[in-house]
Structure formats: structure tokens, C-alpha cells
Design a binder for these strands. Structure first.
Lengths: 237, 237
DNA sequence: ACCTGAACACCGTTCAAGT
DNA sequence: ACCTGAACACCGTTCAAGT
């Protein structure tokens, strides 16, 4: 399979563990207590990062945390629950990215805010393709059972719809079913991100390095097509 | 996990096997020869249909074909190769669907033809969600190694781009980077289909039964936004 | 209260042996 | 030429036993 094992960066996630001398090797058997739950999530996060969601194995996470194969089940009912915890961590980072981008966007240009939400989402997906896979595939995680996931998703959706509603109010875009326009925007952005992570770009003439700009340009095409032609001043009916 | 095991219809795929009396139960051990390859693909196709790509197991396909666990490896180098054969079957059906829809679309309205390609793709994805998953996830199959998959994908892309080029030529849509507009259209349609199969619609206010119409309406929004405002006769620059 | 390690029912894949 | 069935190195998950 096409899993080339990505960049094994040392993710500075879950910072400030109880300091204990040297660079904490997961070999040590000083365990017997400690916060195994967090250690397992951190291990799973790195496994996802290294070679995708499919490579995450409860046993391997346990190995990296230095515990036996049965230990994780004292903290997670099953593999799905572990993956859901990974997804919550990822979704929280995505949410922050989008919120930060929105904070920088001009209050005065709602259509630009709409575009900005999409662009931030795309940037995050390109920067974190494997984590993006985890949050987007409902068969891997228990989305409905997670307040964090449902909440963050709801928040992203609201940001998109609010920006769009404001743009309609200011007549920057034509009137039209708000929810459907938001859905189309969301589908476009999600589709671009998924084409990227699912490896479709080579077949669509997008060079390996040029994904990011191509995605933003495709987004621009949509937003600009939505933008109301200034020459027609009134709603068409 | 959320795999409720779909509708186990008797797919009349791989028709006209060597007739042999009663309804061919895969129990029989009359094997020892026969076209195991086709039988394995048929079994895998049904497994995908019943409960998604992840439920496909080389061993289970072998069981259903009535052979031992090692037998499939005489016909497929690995599980990926079996899944690729499944994807080729699915992609061929998708291609036919789109081609048929294009044959019915008016030669005179290229933008409608562009929309029609997307709509046919969406209809097929909704009707065959699990098979759609197989053809779209490059981690499950060897896309690059399959002439059938690359060819069909290329053909779909060409249909989209040709319709769009003709629409630009007739000034039905504004000029603009053809490839990027095609990419945006493709991403929108792919995104809608993936949101459907990935189970996102409940969180986006789309009712269970209303997926198909909502998807087509979202597609309409894009196509109509692209449609050139008749009041502005000349390209903007 | 938390962890170990054997056990169970699975996988994908290989390979000597059979027909 | 094709298929069997044991074997190997894995999984997820359970559970009695240990500390």
C-alpha cells in the first residue's frame, strides 16, 4: 500500500508531563500507575502521523507506552474509543486554526471571512493529512458519542453560515437557500481536502508541490462565482 | 461501528456462468478447477456491498467461493489486488452510468452537460455507496497499476473538461482557468459524494432520505453561479 | 486500582504436499 | 496447473491472576 511512512517529527503535544529526569523513553517499566490514558493517545497520535489511521494498532500503542497488550482496555473500551480520542485532539487543533484565521479576517468583508474559513480548513488538512483522515471518517471513530467532535463541527458550520448570512444581508452575493450554499461551500472544501489525502491530485493535473495553491484557487473560483455581479443591483426576483 | 450491513440484494453481476443445474450454492466442493478468479471477485463485490470495503477479507471471499484460505493467492498477489479487481468492476459501472447520462443530455447545452456528468456521478455514489468507497480510496487499491481505473478516470475528467470548454467557447460561463474550474466542479461533486458515504449529512442538516435532492441542489448552486450573468456581455478583462 | 500475560478467535500470506 | 491445510506473525479483546 502507498503508505510511505511520513515525517516522524517529534510532536510537542501533551506538554508538561511530570518531569522525570532524562528524555522519557517508553522502554522504562517504572509504570504500574501514571497517566497511561494520555500516553496511549500520544502514541496513537504519532502512529497516525507516521503512517495513517490504518497503522494504529492498540497493541502497538501499548508497546510504545511500555505496557502490556491488555492494559489499554482499562482506559478505552475498544480501538474506536482510542481513535475517537485521537480525533478529538486533532479536531481541537483544526478548530483553533480556523478560529485564529477568522480573528484575523476583516469584519467588514463577510465573503472574505467565508473564504477564509475554507482556506484555513484546507491549510490544516494539507499540513495534517493523516489527522484529517481520522476526523473525517465516521467509520473510524464514534463521532456522535463525542461532545468535542460534535461541538467543534457545529462551530465550524456556524462560522460558515454566519459569514454567508452576513454576505447575503449586505447583498454581496445573490439571495438563495443559505443552507444549500453553505453545504455547497463545505462540500467543495471537503472535496478538495479529500482529493488531496485520497491521492487524487496526480490524476487531475495538480503537481505534488502545487496542491495548496491549486486548492485555494479552486475555492476562489467558487467564492467569486457566488459574488454578485455588481451590474445587477436588485435580486433577480 | 456504524456498519449496519446494507441491502443484501442478489447482484446479477458476472452473468452466464457454466450452467450447472440448481442455484449455484458456494457450498459445493465440485471445485478443483473452474474460474476461481471470477468467483472471488463476485464474493468480494458482495462483501463490499453488504458491509463496506473493510469487511472484505481474503479468507471470507475464499470461504464464499468454497476454497481454502491459500487458494486466492494463486490468482491475486495480495488483498490489494483483489480490491483493485473489485474497483475495476465498480468503476466500469460508474463510467457506463455517466456515459449514458451524457448521451441523453442535449448537445446544445454544454453547461447542462457539465451538470449532468456531476449529477450522474452523484446518483451512482448514492446508489452504490460502498462501491464508491472502493474506487475513491487509493490506499485500498492499486489505482496507478490499473489501466481500467486510470482510463475510466481520465475519461470522466475529459467529459467534464470538454463540456466546460464548450460552455466557455459559447460564452455561457465567464472565461477562467479551465482546469481550475473543472477541478472545483470535480471537488464539489466528490465532496458531496464523500460527505454522503462518510456520514456527514446528519450534521449538516440533510435528512436521511433527502440526500439525493440536496446534493443535486448544491450542484445547481455551483453551476448557476458559474453561469454568466447575461447583462454583462464581454469578458471582464 | 491498575497492570500482566495467557488465551481465543480472527487476519494476510507462504509453502510443502497433494490431485 | 491449481488447490489444500498447516504454519507464522500478526490483530482486537477478555479475564484470571498478580502487585
Amino acid at each position: 500500500m502507498a503508505l510511505k511512512s511520513g515525517k516522524p517529527r517529534t510532536t510537542p503535544r501533551t506538554p508538561g508531563r511530570t518531569a522525570r529526569g532524562a528524555a522519557a523513553r517508553p522502554r522504562r517499566r517504572n509504570y504500574h500507575h501514571g497517566n497511561l490514558r494520555e500516553a496511549l493517545i500520544a502514541a496513537a497520535l504519532r502512529l497516525v502521523e507516521e503512517s495513517g489511521p490504518h497503522s494504529v494498532t492498540v497493541r502497538e500503542a501499548a508497546r510504545r507506552a511500555g505496557v502490556s497488550s491488555g492494559a489499554p482496555f482499562r482506559h478505552f473500551p475498544d480501538r474506536t474509543a482510542l481513535m475517537t480520542a485521537v480525533a478529538e485532539d486533532a479536531m481541537t487543533r483544526l478548530r483553533h486554526e480556523v478560529v485564529a484565521s477568522l480573528a484575523r479576517a476583516p469584519e467588514s468583508d463577510p465573503l472574505e471571512r467565508f473564504r477564509g474559513v475554507g482556506a484555513a480548513y484546507l491549510r490544516w488538512a494539507v499540513a495534517n493529512p493523516t489527522h484529517f483522515q481520522v476526523i473525517s471518517d465516521r467509520r473510524l471513530i464514534d463521532f456522535d458519542g463525542s461532545d468535542v467532535l460534535r461541538g467543534a463541527n457545529e462551530e465550524l458550520r456556524t462560522m460558515l453560515e454566519d459569514a454567508l448570512a452576513e454576505a447575503q444581508r449586505r447583498q454581496l452575493v445573490d439571495r438563495g437557500d443559505l443552507l444549500l450554499v453553505a453545504l455547497a461551500g463545505r462540500a467543495l472544501v471537503y472535496g478538495l481536502a479529500r482529493m488531496y489525502v485520497d491521492g487524487h491530485f496526480p490524476q487531475w493535473g495538480v503537481a505534488a508541490g502545487g496542491a495548496q495553491p491549486a486548492m485555494e484557487e479552486a475555492l476562489d473560483i467558487f467564492v467569486n462565482a457566488l459574488r454578485r455581479n455588481p451590474r445587477s443591483a436588485k435580486p433577480s426576483r
